[in-house]
């Protein structure tokens, strides 16, 4: 049955996301967060987007998660942090956010019912990297330039924020 990978990847992604949100130890949440893009890459693959799946594995599960791992290592979290997180995660805290998220979920599900279903025959034709690349360097070349501007701005601002981080420079107590 060809739908089994999609269902499995979806269950893994949803379960890992729920575990990320509810863990008290930051390292545990981070390890579950690595599972989310990996399983989503599987979902992309079953949806017929192998290029996006590989990019998800390389950039999300590779580069971005390595950034998170480095920061969690540098923060040096310990037992007191875990106890404080447990204190912050009292059950009364979750009522309002759970209500809001549940409302959003219900509203979006009702909206999704209005989408007409696809014909099952031509549903899963893969869209390869060639057509994506032709679009990227054809009509969407301006947005590629804007994305590079965004990355440059992120680089510059991360450098600016992160310099003199040990308190030897200006403006640091």
């Amino acid at each position: 049955m060809s739908d089994l990978p999609f269902i499995l990847f979806s269950l893994v992604a949803a379960w890992a996301a729920i575990m990320v949100v509810t863990r008290a130890v930051a390292v545990h949440a981070l390890l579950y967060l690595v599972v989310v893009p990996l399983s989503l890459a599987g979902v992309f693959f079953t949806l017929g987007a192998p290029f996006a799946a590989m990019l998800e594995v390389i950039i999300y599960a590779g580069a971005v998660m390595v950034l998170f791992v480095f920061v969690v290592m540098m923060l040096n979290l310990g037992r007191s942090d875990r106890d404080r997180e447990r204190h912050w995660m009292a059950p009364a805290v979750w009522i309002g956010p759970a209500l809001l998220s549940g409302l959003l979920l219900i509203a979006l599900c009702i909206t999704l019912r209005t989408i007409p279903p696809t014909a099952a025959s031509d549903a899963m034709v893969p869209i390869g990297p060639q057509s994506v690349g032709l679009l990227l360097y054809g009509p969407y070349v301006l947005s590629v330039e804007l994305a590079s501007f965004l990355l440059l701005a992120g680089l510059v601002s991360a450098f600016h924020i992160g310099r003199n981080i040990r308190g030897t420079g200006t403006g640091e107590p």
Partner: peptide, 21 residues
């Protein structure tokens, strides 16, 4: 088919709600 884009949109909705939570 269960692997239809509509079900993928349902998964996206669920993930978005969990992240917002």
């Amino acid at each position: 088919s269960a692997a239809s884009p509509t079900h993928a949109l349902l998964l996206a909705t669920l993930l978005f709600a969990v992240g917002m939570l």
